[in-house]
Write a protein that binds this DNA or RNA. Structure first.
Lengths: 177, 177
DNA sequence: CTTCCTGTACCGTCTGGACGGTCTTGTCAA
DNA sequence: TTGACAAGACCGTCCAGACGGTACAGGAAG
């Protein structure tokens, strides 16, 4: 066991996400995160020597969890296409009222380059989906629509009603095949 | 003549957008904007008494210009659907390599509520498009895909190649009818 | 003894904003 | 026409506070 009270690194990461969501991305300060995580500022700085490292940790953690969920979704889907699995996964994720990733805005404010890993991950995902279909146009539409859904969730937009959300998902799954 | 050197208010707004784009959304300070606009900080504060007012001005200006472009696009489209005009407009806008609106991240960091007018504008737009079609599913897919495209542009994502971009637009226009 | 962490005190920088002053322009009575 | 003056537009300086980050003395656990 590495830590006395269950991995303080993860607690800090979770706390940072909480602070960003509840107090707004502009209020993500080291002090606030330390307080929220039940850790002293020194302890925080011990795990993440700089704010940039914290952001980087947030990004890496996000990508790791996303990848796991995606693999699980694809494995579970069985005969369905990977695209369909991705659609389902994203739709479920975006159903939750909580944006859950508004820390991204803090990261961008810190340095826009923090997005680079996310962008390359998305490109990889797209390439992968591309290899499994012969209708590139439909894939593009689907992929981008999901991207739009994610963006709306990120911005905490309530532009779509629940019914519309469901209809959208059904339409996408029909396109995805 | 109200101002000596041609509307300093607009110059400030443009300067703010420039700073956010070039120095990053986290570096959008009043000083930086004032310098960029060729205006003293006092002069800036005269036009926008607080940073929040500046952000508000940015949002309102953005919405105003968007609305104008949209009306022009629709009028120009003639027999085409409003949705198709919206698709074209957005596609053109997102072709430009410059994100052009990264100040939005600064606004969110300042206060997420600055997005409210944008959200309600989007909802209005959606309702309007809804009234002009009988295929809600297709509208949803189109609308969300455009949203995805805008988000990618905003995040300065180069996930899509130019060819893919064109193919996407063609597919969307086919769906939009 | 080392690892991991706490707590506190502190520093330099930057920021938003308040403030008083200054220059220009328009108005209007004489 | 001119001179007085008010209002508008803008400048430059100053400041309290918050922030990221450092330094260091300690303490519990293994």
């Amino acid at each position: 066991m590495k830590a006395r009270r269950a991995n303080s690194r993860d607690r800090i990461l979770a706390a940072a996400a909480d602070v960003a969501r509840e107090a707004g991305p502009g209020s993500l300060s080291l002090d606030a995160v330390a307080n929220r995580a039940g850790v002293s500022k020194g302890g925080l700085l011990y795990n993440f020597p700089t704010k940039a490292k914290l952001m980087q940790g947030l990004v890496e953690n996000y990508l790791k969890e996303f990848e796991q969920a995606l693999e699980a979704g694809i494995a579970e889907a069985g005969h369905e296409s990977a695209l369909a699995a991705y659609v389902r996964l994203s739709a479920d994720e975006c159903m939750e009222p909580q944006p859950s990733a508004s820390w991204i805005f803090s990261a961008i404010a810190e340095d826009p380059d923090f997005l680079t890993p996310i962008k390359s991950f998305k490109r990889q995902l797209f390439e992968r989906l591309k290899g499994e279909t012969n209708d590139l146009g439909s894939l593009l539409v689907c992929f981008l629509a999901i991207e739009g859904l994610r963006s709306m969730n990120l911005f905490d937009s309530d532009v779509l009603s629940e019914d519309e959300h469901k209809l959208l998902m059904a339409s996408l799954l029909k396109i995805a095949g």
